[in-house]
Write a protein that binds this DNA or RNA. Structure first.
Length: 744
DNA sequence: GGATTGTGTATTTTT
DNA sequence: TACACAATCC
């Protein structure tokens, strides 16, 4: 008996090449679905294919989809992949981060939570400043109750979905003698006055909307006929509640995640969400993806053996049909420098064998560990890149520039005003600001408005008043030409005329040029936008700087930063007790934290496709102190059959004694002269020189009034080539190089 | 208002 | 050790 021939159906092309479990997940019928996708099992593929499948089969239209991710990068990738699969735009779909979806909802209904639709989204800096103001206003000792602490607390509460009145009593005891709720409320009040939100609010207010307005909830429930969630193990309570509300009606929710890769509990993620899925959504289907397409057998075996030591997990058994490959190598080194030397030497050997550097990564637990590697990379001249670190829009100069633009667009933006009113120095210091604040509080007006009134009175010293008046005039002028110029031209005008660019040009530090480059990059990024307003919205939510991709360099990053990535060869450095697992995590979170550290180790191991090496050092300098380290307990948890130990065996039980007489091959050499440091200083100098305008390149006239960043205002008395003799108002007569001076 | 000295702290990071 | 921040001095 022969089956009828299966007609190749073109629209089903997106199903090609899926394995049975993947196919089951992609084509699963309506209803709650949890896809437990182990590392390297095609998680993203399944999610995008399912979305494409829903669309192609006509089960939903694009406008009926809500697809949430955690990062903008993930959202972008998802959009691109789906578009490629269905060969059509995903226009109309709600696809983005939780926060982006939150803003979208909130902009539409801002007035219902006491905001105007034009509300601003604060960055971390602004939040901190606000928190500080709240602490001060409450008359608390800032040393004992630091602003950071309050902010962290508020964030934690928001992650849990608690508005001030809903914070449980039991939570209140530890901060500021139980005044936490009151401070939180004051912070929220300030936000409302500023017509602003912090990141937590984007979800919290959304939650408020959906709970307080049944008709709205119903509207969104009806609208989103399909909800898809990526990285479900990373959701916090607020996000979970958000999803539960929206999915309540039809329960068409697909969550994809891996409990074994939950590594963000410290910022509110609850592994419990994914572990509880079947209780939360009774009748849910659970599909496990266990076939790994990424790593060799040995790497997978090592990772599986390690993670099996965790108790709180769904449990999956990854398998592969690929080759066993090389065992995971474990190397004990004398100290961090030798560790770096060993790793770099291994990388050089790979390079000689033709391996691209871009296929190699060094992963560490904490940021400070990258330094030893950087030094070694510089010494050997091997191209590398430290991934992570402060992101583009978090850089000081970018935030400053954005504050300028915000102030031009939104005249009452007090936080932006405070940030840049005296940057560059204009002689409007703390005292002046205090007077301003006092007057503003009295009248309930914004600082800028208050300033306008104050410059007409005698309340400020003449000098300060003049400076402030000049600054306000500048603001007016910029605002006046706002309509006539492109966002880019506008930014260039403001940054030039304000003296902000000149400030960095005069700065004598090696990174000043980099900052100027970043400013230029910002201006270029502005090209894409119609108006400054839309740019500012974008920048509040979107992270990425222009990561120069494609270069053939070794990547150095933290384990957290490596999540979601993969490399042919991975070096996992610093596997020592106290560092990894981190002592601090253990102290604060006990057994639960240990499991998270172990998941982090698991994430590290499973980043590797073909080769993985783990290293630890016997001695490490922590906070300037040499400490003796004990090899990480995680080393002992790697199954012996998947591991090859170099330089003697720490494997059976990683007690330092068992390593043999402290690694005979490795002699102590902790103290070593650092020629490198000196080289770097020289390099820095060269950069400073290059970044200054060429001497004599500016035309100054005798008698001209100038401003010097250090010495303040003055008048040019004489000119000798690039040297100016200046009578400073405060600092007296001095000779300075013209590049450090600007026209007043 | 700005420079200087002193003190305290020290993971992981996205939005 | 190294850095950021706040109190202190000029």
């Amino acid at each position: 008996m022969s089956l009828p021939p299966i007609e190749p159906v073109e629209p089903m092309a997106h199903l090609a090449g899926l394995n049975p479990e993947q196919l089951a997940a992609v084509t699963a019928p309506d209803g709650p679905l949890l896809v437990l996708a182990g590392a390297g099992t095609g998680k993203t593929r399944v999610l995008t294919c399912r979305l494409a499948h829903l669309l192609v089969t006509g089960r939903v239209r694009p406008g009926e989809v809500l697809a949430v991710t955690f990062t903008n990068k993930a959202a972008r990738e998802m959009a691109e992949r789906v578009e490629r699969l269905i060969d059509r735009s995903v226009q109309g779909m709600w696809l983005g981060t939780f926060h982006a979806m939150g803003v979208r909802m909130l902009r539409a209904h801002a007035e219902l939570v006491g905001l105007e639709p034009s509300f601003t989204i604060l960055d971390t800096d602004d939040q901190l400043r606000l928190s500080k103001q709240v602490i001060q206003a409450a008359g608390l000792d800032e040393r004992r109750w630091p602003a950071r602490g309050l902010l962290a607390l508020i964030q934690r509460w928001k992650d849990k979905g608690w508005t001030p009145e809903r914070v449980p009593e039991a939570e209140l005891s530890d901060f500021a003698l139980g005044r936490g709720r009151e401070l939180y409320a004051a912070y929220q009040e300030r936000l409302r006055t500023l017509n602003a939100c912090d990141f937590g609010d984007l979800l919290l207010h959304g939650l408020e909307l959906l709970t307080a307005r049944p008709e709205l909830l119903e509207r969104y429930q009806r609208r989103f006929r399909a909800i898809l969630v990526d990285e479900y193990q990373d959701t916090n309570v607020a996000q979970y509640l958000w999803l539960r509300l929206l999915a309540q009606g039809h329960r068409n929710i697909t969550c994809v995640g891996d409990d074994d890769q939950s590594i963000y509990s410290w910022r509110g993620a609850e592994v419990g969400n994914i572990l509880r899925f079947e209780q939360d959504f009774p009748g849910a289907s659970v599909i496990r993806l266990e076939r790994n397409y990424r790593s060799t057998g040995h790497i997978l075996g090592a990772a599986a053996g390690l993670i099996a030591h965790n108790r709180a997990r769904h449990g999956k058994t990854l398998w592969t049909e690929g080759e066993a490959g090389e065992p995971v190598r474990v190397a004990g080194l004398w100290d961090e420098e030798e560790e770096a030397r060993w790793v770099v030497q291994e990388i050089e050997a790979l390079q000689r064998r033709g391996e691209p550097l871009a296929s190699i990564a060094v992963l560490v637990r904490a940021g400070f560990q990258t330094r030893a590697f950087e030094e070694r990379f510089i010494q050997t001249g091997l191209p590398y890149r430290v991934v992570g670190g402060p992101r583009f829009y978090e850089r000081q100069e970018i935030r400053d520039a954005i504050a300028y633009l915000r102030l031009v667009v939104q005249p009452d933006d007090d936080l932006a005003f405070e940030r840049i009113v005296n940057l560059p120095r204009r002689g409007i210091g703390e005292a002046a600001l205090k007077t301003l604040h006092g007057a503003a509080r009295g009248s309930g007006r914004s600082l800028v408005r208050t300033a306008r009134e104050l410059v007409l009175t005698d309340e400020l010293p003449a000098r300060t008043r003049g400076a402030l008046a000049r600054f306000l005039d500048q603001l007016d002028r910029w605002r006046g030409v706002l309509g006539e110029r492109s966002p880019r031209a506008m930014a260039e005008l403001v940054l030039e005329e304000s003296g902000y660019v000149a400030m960095w040009q005069a700065e004598r530090t090696p990174d000043a040029q980099g900052r100027l480059d970043n400013l230029k990059e910002l201006a270029e990024a502005l090209e894409e936008f119609e108006g400054l307003g839309s740019f500012l919205e974008h920048v509040a939510l979107v992270v990425d700087g222009a990561a120069e991709a494609g270069a053939d360099v070794v990547s150095v990053m933290t384990l957290h930063g490596a999540k979601g990535l993969e490399f042919d060869t991975v070096f996992l450095a610093g596997w020592e007790e106290g560092l990894f697992p981190s002592q601090r995590a253990l102290d604060e979170g006990g057994a639960r934290a240990l499991e998270e550290e172990r998941r982090l180790a698991y994430v590290g191991l499973t980043r590797a496709r073909r080769r993985c090496a783990v290293s630890f050092a016997a001695n490490r300098r922590l906070y300037g102190q040499w400490t003796t380290a004990v090899p990480s307990r995680f080393l002992a948890e790697l199954p012996a059959e998947h591991v090859e130990v170099l330089h003697r065996s720490p494997r059976a039980r990683p007690d330092w004694e068992l390593l043999g007489d402290p690694l005979p091959a490795l002699r102590p050499a902790p103290f070593r002269t650092r020629r490198l440091a000196a080289d770097r200083v020289l390099e820095g100098r060269a950069e400073i020189l290059a970044s200054r305008p060429p001497a004599g390149s500016r035309t100054f006239r005798v008698g001209e009034r100038i401003f010097h960043d250090k010495f303040g205002y003055g008048r040019i008395e004489a000119i000798d080539g690039d040297k100016l003799e200046i009578a400073f108002e405060k600092a007296g007569r001095k000779k300075v190089v013209d590049s450090f001076v600007d026209p007043a």
